[in-house]
Design a protein around this nucleic acid. Sequence first.
DNA 1: CCGCATCCGTTTCGATACTG
DNA 2: CAGTATCGAAACGGATGCGG
Lengths: 215, 215
Amino acid sequence: MPTTRSYNDLCPIARALDVVGERWALLVVRELLLGPQRFSDLRDALPGVSSNLLTDRLRELEARGVVRRRVLPPPAGSSVYELTDRGGRLEPVLDALGEWGATESPAADGSLSATAVLLFLRGSLRAHPAAPSGTFRLRLENRAWTLVRRDGVLEIEPGDTEAADAEIRTDPITLNALLFDPDGLDAAVATGDAEIEGDVDALRRLLTAVALGGS
Amino acid sequence: MPTTRSYNDLCPIARALDVVGERWALLVVRELLLGPQRFSDLRDALPGVSSNLLTDRLRELEARGVVRRRVLPPPAGSSVYELTDRGGRLEPVLDALGEWGATESPAADGSLSATAVLLFLRGSLRAHPAAPSGTFRLRLENRAWTLVRRDGVLEIEPGDTEAADAEIRTDPITLNALLFDPDGLDAAVATGDAEIEGDVDALRRLLTAVALGGS
DNA sequence: CCGCATCCGTTTCGATACTG
DNA sequence: CAGTATCGAAACGGATGCGG
């Protein structure tokens, strides 16, 4: 049964927290920021959330107009969860939280979803104006995203939406490490933790731009 | 006993939520944004939080470097809680949450602390460039704040920090209503819900600027 | 397998009472 | 005023089961 608890506070901040202040709620929104996800994608991206609680959160966020459930057209038949317009407008909240959280110690251990590292990557590049232009394919956890930087705007979309200058296949943890130490790219390739293709120098410049921006 | 539960997620957003994602935590930060507060101030501003939980939250936020407890110099002897620099950097998070929460329905009923309405007032005026310059004294719940708009910057500080052009004495709910309907000022004065002094026209222009910005 | 629903032990929360 | 102590209620977390 979904939570109905409220702060009973007229302040807009408190009313926002009534909607997305429950445990896991904002992390579900985080996972949906780059595109729709299936129930099991969310569960895998959020280790520690139990399936029943994930169901509750999704129902609650759906009832509050943050998330929408959409049944894919046949033959898929399965359904995905995606942000509504209102849910998408939570992006500045998550950006601000991420910026604040990034000032802490570099963190010890834990999981890291593909969406999480891609959001960090995107935020770092957006904050760092010197990032190179180009189109990059990122393959993480058997899924693909396309990073496009053109005319100063940076977007990351799910899928192979267009031809890429370079491609990297790796896992979120390795990619995250490379964002802090781009020079580790060759070593990661050597150990098989990452595979790269295409314009490798462009990829290297991309990683370096993040590392410079983050310091 | 303070909470130690973690998402165990390397994402900066999740790590931020490990610190300020517990219930009431961000509302405590909200209350401290405009200046130090005593324990009982916080409890009164946050009806619904039990004193033991407020103690837990403050201890937790103190341990995480968000809040600091400070003992006032004699003869006061009492102690106050205030934000650390790191805690103060949460302001963009609360701004973003407030902006998102304000797009909802105007809210039905509930409490409203002085800080909450002043933060809303400040945010609205900052977003609306046409707000008039001047210095205003705001008296709510037996406490005073000074609103200064000068050279395009707007600040609200606790106390009577400088001479004011006008003063209003009222309660948070009435002030909030006036922010949506400035024309209600005369009625509020007539019923005794508000008392005003000084340059009343300047006060009227201030309220009107908020109403225009919020629409 | 996916998308839940049910059950159950543990943690957190909320209300009230009480103390220095 | 500034917290502590206690206790029932709610929320959370993990395991298991079940229909498609």
